[in-house]
Nucleic acid binder design. Structure first.
Lengths: 186, 186
DNA sequence: GTCTATAATAGGATAGAC
DNA sequence: GTCTATCCTATTATAGAC
């Protein structure tokens, strides 16, 4: 066989798809292998340290995706409301309108959470900072802006959890829709 | 050895402790055995169908606990604000002031979620109904009351997730503290 | 009811051919 | 780079003594 069918980035995207759905413990090498179309040994060729290294690669991939699609609109030069709407549009897409799990939430379950805790913490932190910026621009004091940004993440993560548990993705979509205005209210 | 050291209820409580922390896939029989002080075979004596049956027992136990500690205050004859404060006080205790994971959230990760989905859905549904009641008593229209109850669960679950991921339990405690007044605002 | 012992299987990881 | 074959360990589950 010639060149690989999938680029490394596509491979990592497929690993992420399995891991966000199954969690660390539930994501078996068999499933990871099937999802990527690579045999177990091929996976070990790309990730010599095994599953842990795959998760690190997936977290790197998530960080890049977040920066490009979620943080970037928040840091544009558009008005605050539009920046926040840019974020919610990206989130709606990334979470399949409430049907796909959050990788950070899935990795927060089990022993894996201990290992990747610093990384999860850093990603959430950066996200809070990024949301705070348009609120600051809108004249909201620093402390209030941070508290609202934290609340935004609670609502996003909570809405996703509830939407998936209830089988009602609309709960997530509706929460995203109302979020920008709620964050900017006086 | 004579009578068992732990009552069945205590055994189930310890099973819950492991499962909420590790999730379905991460909760091995070895850990379950260690946490309960029962050998593997003793666990199979109580739960012949293995881990699945243990989870069902844990969900039954959670349902009973929720009814007794969370739903009951919501249905008391106290004023709405006090009812909601009764719930948040129970939640603060149950979730160790933001340090213990939510069983429903942990079971929502992985293939297990498919199996227990109806049960998770039912528990969240009952919770939403229970929170709606004091809001209705306070004169909030039915539709608004349900939407706010759903939002309450998003905030509770999201705050717990974020508090644990960030290593800042205070995020959870603060969210609980502000919740009753926010749910009743005009 | 609890234990030891033991299947039987799935999981993560490696070796080496091609 | 990818494959087949294999190893080792952990895991679920059962059998049977006490």
């Amino acid at each position: 066989m010639p060149a690989p069918l999938l680029s490394l980035d596509e491979v990592i995207a497929r690993l992420m798809s399995v891991i966000r759905r199954e969690g660390y413990d539930g994501a078996s090498l068999a499933e990871l292998s099937k999802a990527t179309g690579l045999g177990r040994s091929s996976l070990y060729h790309y990730f010599p340290d095994g599953k842990d290294q795959m998760v690190v690669a997936v977290l790197d991939h998530l960080e890049a995706t977040m920066k490009a699609n979620v943080f970037a609109p928040l840091r544009s030069d558009a008005p605050p409301l539009e920046r926040l709407q840019g974020m919610t549009a990206a989130l709606d897409k990334f979470y399949g309108s409430g049907q796909e799990a959050c990788l950070l939430a899935s990795l927060g379950v089990g022993d894996a959470s201990k290992q990747f805790h610093p990384r999860l913490r850093q990603l959430f932190s950066a996200w809070i900072v990024a949301i705070s910026e348009p609120l600051r621009v809108a004249g909201i004091p620093r402390g209030t802006a941070q508290a609202r940004a934290e609340k935004a993440l609670m609502l996003i993560e909570g809405a996703l959890l509830l939407a998936r548990a209830m089988g009602e993705p609309a709960l997530f979509v509706r929460t995203l829709r109302d979020l920008p205005a709620e964050l900017l209210r006086r």
